[in-house]
């Protein structure tokens, strides 16, 4: 009897622990969602004045906020595409060829990941100033590609770890040339790793503040805009946009997850 009781208590405790962890993770997010429907109009927009969806309408009158969101999306999409192509080719190349100093190059890849973003931000700004590229959209994209590439490489390389390169030889043997083999065999088999890397790059790009802060010039991205408005309390229309982004992200994650699972099932040996 005692044993059963103890068992029950143990189960309850683990359930409680689990609930607390999720509460900890999701409480801050839910605050934003709730506050985006707050009818308050006085700064700092924190006391609850009743439910409204007005902010979702007003949001579309705030052209500078929408503009910043548009910038963020353009930067995220372009830099994700570039980083994914560069990172995938890099990972495949590093996997396939043996050369002197490969271990060193491998190690160097971790540098942009581990150094403080503020250092990377200053370095990039210095370089852009030295070669005199006007700060704006272009420098933002270049900077985002820089810090996204290693993440794509890591993801694709993880996929390559379980990759049997004799399937490429089999493809060549069966009459496909090298380019055909890359698109028929290499790319589809690596697709889950590439997709994972791209998704990571996309998220990193969307919410980057520190590096963007150094290289943005006059161009505002959505996170920068939010940072700016924080001095006067986060306006509920910002909350509204954040909630919409959150919704979009959830949809995206659900879609890719289910898709990834499907591909994984096929590829599993």
């Amino acid at each position: 009897m005692k044993r059963k009781k103890r068992e029950r208590n143990r189960k309850r405790l683990s359930a409680l622990f689990c609930a607390l962890v999720y509460l900890f993770l999701f409480l801050p997010i839910s605050v934003i969602v709730v506050n985006s429907m707050n009818a308050t109009t006085s700064k700092p927009y924190l006391s609850w004045k009743g439910f409204t969806l007005d902010w979702y309408v007003k949001l579309f009158d705030n052209s500078s906020l929408l503009q910043s969101f548009g910038n963020t999306m353009v930067i995220a999409i372009v830099s994700t595409l570039l980083a994914t192509v560069i990172g995938t080719l890099g990972a495949v190349g590093m996997y396939r060829y043996k050369f002197k100093g490969k271990a060193l190059l491998d190690g160097l890849l971790y540098i942009p990941v581990v150094i403080p973003e503020i250092v990377l931000g200053i370095s990039l700004l210095t370089i852009f100033a030295l070669v005199d590229i006007p700060r704006g959209m272009l420098t933002l994209i270049l900077a985002h590609v820089t810090f996204c590439v290693p993440y794509v490489i890591f993801n694709v390389r993880a996929r390559l770890a379980g990759y049997d390169s004799s399937i490429e030889e089999a493809s060549l043997d069966l009459g496909a040339n090298r380019i055909r083999t890359f698109f028929e065999i290499t790319l589809p088999v690596l697709a889950p790793g590439i997709a994972g890397g791209a998704l990571l790059a996309f998220t990193l790009s969307i919410d980057d503040v520190i590096i963007s802060y150094f290289v943005n010039g006059q161009t505002k991205t959505f996170p920068l805009k939010v940072m700016e408005s924080i001095k006067s309390g986060v306006a509920p229309d910002v909350n509204a946009l954040s909630t919409l982004i959150l919704l979009g992200t959830i949809v995206l994650v659900v879609l890719t997850q289910s898709d990834l699972l499907k591909i994984k099932k096929k590829v599993k040996r």
Binding site: D164, I167, E169, A170, P188, V189, V267, K268, R269
Partner: peptide
């Protein structure tokens, strides 16, 4: 004009 059967089979998993 030769074809190979590989030790690891090397079937295309996808």
């Amino acid at each position: 004009n030769v074809n190979t059967v590989f030790q690891s089979y090397a079937l295309f998993p996808h």
